[in-house]
Simulated scan of single mutants.
Amino acid sequence: MHFLSADLEAYAEQNSEKEPSLLAALARETHLKVLQPRMLSGHLQGRFLSLLSKLICPKYIVEIGTFTGYATLCLAEGLSQEGFIHTIEVNEELEEIQNKYFEQSSYRSQIIQHFAPALSVIPTLPDGIDLVFIDADKKNYPNYLEAILPKMRKGGIILSDNVLWSGKVVENVKDNDKHTQVLISYNQQLANDSRLETILLPIRDGLSIARVR
């Protein structure tokens, strides 16, 4: 499901900050060489992530699901001078393309990569997280949330991507469609959790923003 027509999406991009050339090159290479390039955040969502990070000016970001590193670089744009981002990816085959673009950026020294299941990495991370971006396997979204919440600082922000799941969350869900079932439950969990203040935005494929009370 496209929530905006191609013309409206192009108009929004034209009237937003221009996509940095490094990220445009990364997006192009991802589409040429990597399976499921749709997983890339892309221009409009990427500029949103960048601006939100700049507003927060975080010292400590955690990203669950690096893919080729597009969103990583967008989030890193808002890091404070002494800040860092831990980014977690289970697919080691993506390390080469990640490093190619991380090394061309201004943030290489601030990016800490982990190649392992996120649920094994999160417990090893220090407390006091300012900003989290969850964009990995959907079935574990509730588990990621529960693992990350105790490590968040008060007022920290948790972003969750793909929470509208191509519109399937408002359709008749098939019994074997476990991803949609999990996301419906997860969205309700975010909305009803007394520890959080949440808004679900129809950006790209759905992006939730939750603030830790």
Rank of each mutant, 00 (worst) to 15 (best):
S5F: 01
S5E: 02
S5P: 01
A6P: 02
A12G: 09
E13W: 10
N15Q: 10
S16Q: 10
K18D: 08
L22I: 15
L22V: 10
A27P: 05
R28S: 10
E29N: 02
E29P: 03
T30V: 04
T30W: 05
H31D: 06
L35V: 08
Q36D: 15
Q36K: 14
Q36N: 15
M39N: 05
L40S: 09
L40G: 05
S41H: 03
H43A: 07
H43K: 04
L44G: 06
Q45L: 15
R47T: 07
L49D: 01
L49Q: 07
C57L: 13
C57A: 15
K59R: 12
Y60H: 07
I61P: 04
E63P: 01
G65C: 02
T66A: 11
F67I: 03
T68M: 07
A71R: 08
A71N: 06
L75A: 10
S80Y: 03
S80T: 05
E82D: 01
G83E: 03
H86M: 09
T87R: 11
I88V: 14
V90L: 14
V90E: 10
N91S: 06
N91M: 05
E93R: 10
E93S: 15
L94R: 13
L94A: 05
L94P: 05
L94V: 04
E95Y: 09
E96T: 11
I97A: 04
K100L: 08
K100I: 10
S105G: 05
S105L: 13
S105M: 10
S106K: 15
Y107E: 07
S109E: 13
Q110V: 06
Q110R: 12
I111F: 01
I111D: 00
A116P: 02
A118K: 08
L119E: 06
I122V: 06
P123C: 03
P123V: 09
T124K: 15
P126Q: 14
P126F: 11
D127N: 15
G128V: 00
G128E: 01
D130T: 00
L131N: 02
F133W: 00
K139Y: 10
K139A: 14
N140E: 14
Y141D: 09
Y144S: 12
L145R: 08
E146M: 08
E146K: 15
E146P: 03
E146S: 14
E146H: 12
A147F: 01
I148C: 03
M152S: 03
I157C: 02
V163C: 02
L164D: 00
L164S: 00
S166D: 12
K168I: 04
V170R: 11
V170Q: 08
N172I: 13
V173M: 07
D175Q: 15
N176M: 08
K178T: 12
T180C: 07
Q181D: 05
V182H: 09
I184H: 09
S185P: 06
S185W: 11
Y186N: 14
N192R: 12
E197D: 13
T198S: 12
T198F: 00
L201R: 07
S208F: 05
S208L: 04
A210Q: 06
R211M: 12
R213N: 13
R213A: 07
R213Q: 12
